[in-house]
Design a protein around this nucleic acid. Structure first.
Length: 631
DNA sequence: GTAGGGTTAG
C-alpha cells in the first residue's frame, strides 16, 4: 500500500491566512525563499495552494509561481483546480487538469480530489456537455464509487438542473455516507423537489448540523420561509449546534417574512453566543435590518463590520434606496468605489434604484453607461426596467419610450409596466394604451396593466373606456388582486382585505376612519378620488377610497397601538397616492410615525413629512405574517 | 496541507 506522507503546514506559510495585502504576502514569500523552504516540493505546494485559495485576486501570482516550477505535485495542481473552480474564470481549471494528464516529468494521474474539484468547475460553468465528459473521465479512472466524487457529481448535476442524473449517481452509491445524503437532499431542494428533500431528511438515521442547515436552506431558497424557521426551531430544540451558516439562513428567512423581531433575536443570539461573525453573516444582518425598514440599525451593523464584500455593499446601497434614502445610497456607492470594491450587476440595480427614488436621471444615466464602459458589465433586463422607471418618474415619457425601443433585447413586462406607471402618474393616455397593450401581449392576465389603464381613463372621466376595459377583464378572467394590509398588535397579526368587514373591531375602525376624514378635511385635505375605478358619485368614491386596506390598517393601528409605538403596515400592492398623502397627514395630525412597506419599497412618514426619519421599532414580540396575499 | 450547507436583484 502506498504510504501517504503528511507534512503539517509550515508556520510561515500559515501566516499567509492572516495577511491582507499583496505587500505582506510578498514579504512572507521573500522569507520562504531566503530560508530555502520553498525548495521542498511539499512546502512549495502548500505555499501555492494557500495563496491561491486565500484570495481569488492572488491567482495570477500563484500561476506565475507555477510557471517557474517544472514539477508541480498533484496536491499543487489539485489546489489550482479547486481555486479556479471558485474564481470568476473557472474554465482555467482545465489547464491544470491537462497538466496532470500530460505531465511528462513526474507521471501524475488524476485522483479523487482532482475530480471532486473538477466537477465543481463544471457546475460553476453550467457546462452540461463538459460535465458529462468529466463524469466519463471519473468512470475511466475508476473513481465512480468514491464517496467524495459521488458527492461532487450529485452537486454538479443539481447545479445543472438534472435531478434524474443526481438520483442515478446517488442510487449507484453502495452505502451513501452522511455527506452524500446531504448533497442529495440539497439537490432535491435545488431542483424543485423540496418535499422529497424533506422526506429524505425525516428518514435519515443520522443528521449533522450541515444536514439541518441544508434543509433550512432548501426551504428558504424556494420561498417557503416559514417552514425554514420551523426547521430552525426544531434544530434548536434538538440541541443541534447552531453555527454562523444557520444564522445566515434563518436571517434570510426572516428577511423574506419581514419578521424584524425574530431577526433581532438572531442578532442578539449571535452577539451573546459569540457566533463567528463572517462577512456573509454581517451582510445577512445588514440586509435583514434594511429590508425590515430599520435603516439605522442596518447602517450601524454595516459600518461596524471589519470586512465588506460586494454583497455587503450592494445590500446596504439597495437597502438605503428601498427606504427612500437615494442620496445616501449614492454616497455609499462612491465610498464603495473609493475602497476599491468592484461593483457587479446587482450593485447597479441598487444604484439605479437610488437614482430613481430621488429623480436623478442624468446621474442614473451616467451610472448605467458606466456599467459597460467602465466595468464591462452588460446591463440586464432589470437595469433597463429601472432606467425606464427613472425617465418615467421624471415625466420624461418620450425618452422612456425611446429607451425601451433602443433595448438590445425584447422589452419585458417590467419595462412596459414602468412606462405604464409613469403614464398613470402623468396622465398620458396614448402612451399608456401602447404600454398596456404590450404588457397584455406578454402576459395575458396581468391585472395591474388593466387597473392602471382604467385609472388613466378615469382621470379623463372616460367611463365608457373604463367600462369596456372592465368587460374585457371579465371576459378574459383577469382578476384584480385585492388590496391587503397587515399590522401587528401585541404579537398578533391583523389582516385587512379591501371590502372585508369581518374584523371584530370593525365598528371602532369605521368610527376612527370617520374621525380621520373629519380631521383631514379640517386640515384642507381634498381626496384624490381618481384611483377609484367605478363610475360612481364623488362622495361614494371618497368612501371607497377611505376603505383602502392600508387606511383601515392605519386606523386600526391608531386605536390599538398606544403610546409612541410607530404604526407598521405591510401591504401586497403599491400604496396609492391618496393613501400616501393621507398617511403623511395622519403622521402629523395624530403625531404618529407610520411606516408602510408596499410591494415596491418602504415609505416612512413622520411629522407630516416623508423619509429622513429616525426609525425606531419598539415591539419585541415575534410573529409570522399570514399566508394570504403577497408580501 | 485538498472534499458538504450560507449572503446582494427579480
Amino acid at each position: 500500500m502506498k504510504s501517504v506522507k503528511r507534512i503539517a503546514k509550515h508556520p510561515t506559510i500559515s501566516l499567509l491566512n492572516s495577511c491582507t495585502t499583496l505587500k505582506e504576502m510578498k514579504q512572507i514569500h521573500a522569507q520562504l525563499v531566503v530560508k530555502g523552504i520553498l525548495n521542498n516540493p511539499h512546502f512549495h505546494g502548500q505555499f501555492v495552494a494557500t495563496i491561491a485559495l486565500h484570495n481569488t485576486t492572488n491567482l495570477d501570482y500563484a500561476n506565475k509561481l507555477l510557471n517557474h516550477n517544472n514539477n508541480p505535485t498533484l496536491f499543487t495542481l489539485n489546489s489550482m483546480i479547486r481555486a479556479y473552480s471558485k474564481s470568476s474564470t473557472p474554465s482555467k481549471s482545465f489547464h491544470f487538469y491537462a497538466n496532470i494528464l500530460h505531465s511528462n516529468n513526474n507521471n501524475l494521474s488524476p485522483d479523487n480530489y482532482t475530480f471532486t474539484f473538477l466537477v465543481r468547475t463544471c457546475a460553476q460553468l453550467q457546462a452540461h456537455v463538459t460535465g458529462l465528459c468529466v463524469h466519463g473521465a471519473v468512470i475511466k479512472h475508476g473513481f465512480e464509487l468514491d464517496p467524495h466524487v459521488q458527492t461532487g457529481l450529485v452537486f454538479m448535476y443539481a447545479e445543472l438542473g438534472c435531478l434524474s442524473s443526481c438520483h442515478n449517481v446517488f442510487d449507484g452509491a453502495v452505502e451513501p455516507d452522511l455527506v452524500t445524503q446531504t448533497a442529495m437532499l440539497n439537490a432535491c431542494a435545488k431542483c424543485g423537489d423540496i418535499d422529497f428533500a424533506r422526506k429524505m431528511f425525516d428518514e435519515m438515521p443520522e443528521r449533522d448540523h450541515v444536514t439541518w442547515n441544508a434543509m433550512i436552506a432548501g426551504y428558504a431558497q424556494c420561498g417557503r420561509s416559514r417552514e425554514a424557521l420551523d426547521v430552525f426551531h426544531l434544530m434548536q430544540m434538538e440541541g443541534v449546534k447552531l453555527n454562523e451558516v444557520s444564522m445566515v439562513l434563518v436571517l434570510s428567512a426572516c428577511t423574506h417574512l419581514q419578521v424584524l423581531d425574530h431577526g433581532r433575536w438572531v442578532h442578539a443570539y449571535v452577539e451573546r453566543y459569540k457566533v463567528r461573525m463572517t462577512v456573509t453573516l454581517g451582510t445577512a444582518l445588514v440586509d435583514m435590518y434594511a429590508k425590515c425598514g430599520n435603516v439605522d440599525r442596518a447602517m450601524q451593523v454595516f459600518w461596524g463590520m471589519k470586512e465588506r464584500n460586494v454583497y455587503t455593499w450592494s445590500s446596504a446601497i439597495g437597502g438605503l434606496a428601498m427606504n427612500g434614502f437615494g442620496e445616501e445610497s449614492l454616497d455609499l456607492f462612491n465610498d464603495m468605489k473609493r475602497e476599491g470594491v468592484q461593483p457587479n450587476g446587482i450593485t447597479f440595480i441598487s444604484v439605479l434604484k437610488g437614482c430613481s427614488v430621488v429623480g436623478l436621471v442624468e446621474e442614473g444615466r451616467k451610472h448605467f453607461d458606466s456599467m459597460r464602459n467602465v466595468y464591462g458589465i452588460g446591463p440586464q433586463l432589470e437595469h433597463y426596467g429601472l432606467m425606464v422607471d427613472m425617465y418615467g418618474r421624471a415625466g420624461r415619457l418620450k425618452e422612456a419610450l425611446n429607451f425601451i425601443n433602443s433595448m438590445p433585447m425584447r422589452p419585458h413586462v417590467g419595462a412596459w409596466s414602468a412606462l405604464l406607471h409613469a403614464c398613470r402618474m402623468y396622465k398620458n393616455k396614448e402612451l399608456g394604451e401602447i404600454a398596456q397593450r404590450k404588457i397584455v401581449e406578454l402576459e395575458d392576465k396581468n391585472d395591474g396593466a388593466y387597473v392602471l389603464l382604467s385609472n388613466i381613463y378615469a382621470d379623463y372621466k372616460n367611463w365608457e373606456s373604463v367600462s369596456s376595459l372592465r368587460q374585457t377583464m371579465k371576459a378574459k378572467g383577469v382578476k384584480k388582486l385585492p388590496g391587503c394590509s397587515v399590522i401587528e398588535v401585541d404579537g398578533e397579526v391583523h389582516e385587512f382585505i379591501v371590502g372585508d368587514k369581518s374584523h371584530p373591531r370593525y365598528d371602532e375602525i369605521e368610527m376612527k376612519l370617520e374621525e380621520i376624514s373629519k380631521c383631514l378635511r379640517l386640515s384642507g385635505y381634498v381626496a384624490n378620488t381618481n384611483p377609484v375605478l367605478f363610475d360612481i358619485e364623488e362622495e361614494e368614491k371618497e368612501d371607497a377610497l377611505s376603505k383602502h386596506s392600508e387606511k383601515v390598517a392605519i386606523a386600526f393601528g391608531l386605536i390599538s397601538l398606544k403610546g409612541v409605538v410607530p404604526i407598521r403596515v405591510v401591504m401586497n400592492l403599491r400604496i396609492c397616492w391618496d393613501c400616501h398623502n393621507v398617511a403623511k397627514m395622519i403622521s402629523k395630525i395624530f403625531n404618529r410615525e407610520i411606516i408602510v412597506r408596499d410591494r415596491n419599497r418602504f415609505h416612512h412618514f413622520k411629522d407630516g413629512f416623508v423619509k429622513n426619519v429616525q426609525v425606531l421599532w419598539l415591539s419585541f414580540t415575534f410573529w409570522y405574517p399570514p399566508i394570504r396575499g403577497e408580501y
